[in-house]
Amino acid sequence: MLKEFKTFIARGNVIDLAVGVIIGSAFTAIVTSLTKNLINPLIGIFLGKIDLSGLVLTVGQAHFRYGDFLDAVINFLIIAFVVFLMVKGITKLMPTEEPEEEATPEPSSEEIVLTEIRDLLKQQQETTQQQTKE
C-alpha cells in the first residue's frame, strides 16, 4: 500500500496540482490586496466611502455586511478574468495538432475474395434475369 501511495504522489498530475494550489493561494493574496488597496478606493470615490467592507445594512438586530460581499465579488471577477486571460494565452501558445487524414487501409485477402464472390454473384443474377426475360 505504501508503494502504491508513493507511485501516486510521484505522478506528475499530483505535483502539478500542488504547485497550482500554492500559486493560486499566493495569487489570491495579490488580488485581495489589489481589490482592498486600489479598486475599493476608486469605487469609494463614487460611493463616498473608501472602505467598502464598512458598508452595512441594519434591519432590526440583523447586520447585513454587503460591503464584504462586494469585496468578495470584485475579487472573484478579477481572479476569473485573469484565469480567462491565462487560459486564452496558453491555448494560443500550445500547438494545435492537425488531425491526420485516415489512410484507407489495404483490403485484406479475405475482403478481396469476398468482393470477387459478390461481383460474380451479381453477374450471375443479372445473366439469369436476362435469360428469363428472353
Rank of each mutant, 00 (worst) to 15 (best):
G60W: 07
T28M: 13
I30P: 08
T58I: 05
F69Q: 11
R65A: 09
L77C: 14
Q61K: 15
A72I: 11
H63S: 14
G54I: 02
R65H: 13
L34R: 13
K49L: 00
A80H: 13
T58Y: 01
R65G: 11
F69V: 11
V59Q: 03
N40W: 08
F69W: 09
F46L: 11
G48A: 04
L77F: 06
L34P: 12
L42P: 05
R65M: 14
V56L: 14
L70F: 00
L77E: 09
K88G: 03
I50G: 12
L55W: 00
L57Y: 01
A29Y: 12
V82D: 02
V59W: 12
S53E: 05
V59N: 08
Y66S: 01
I79Y: 05
M86Q: 10
V83R: 02
V87T: 02
N40Q: 11
N40E: 14
T32I: 09
G48Q: 03
L77A: 09
F84Q: 06
P41W: 01
I79E: 05
S53I: 01
I50F: 08
A29I: 15
D68Y: 05
I78K: 05
V56C: 03
K49R: 04
A29T: 13
L38S: 04
R65T: 13
N75P: 12
R65S: 14
L85A: 04
V87P: 08
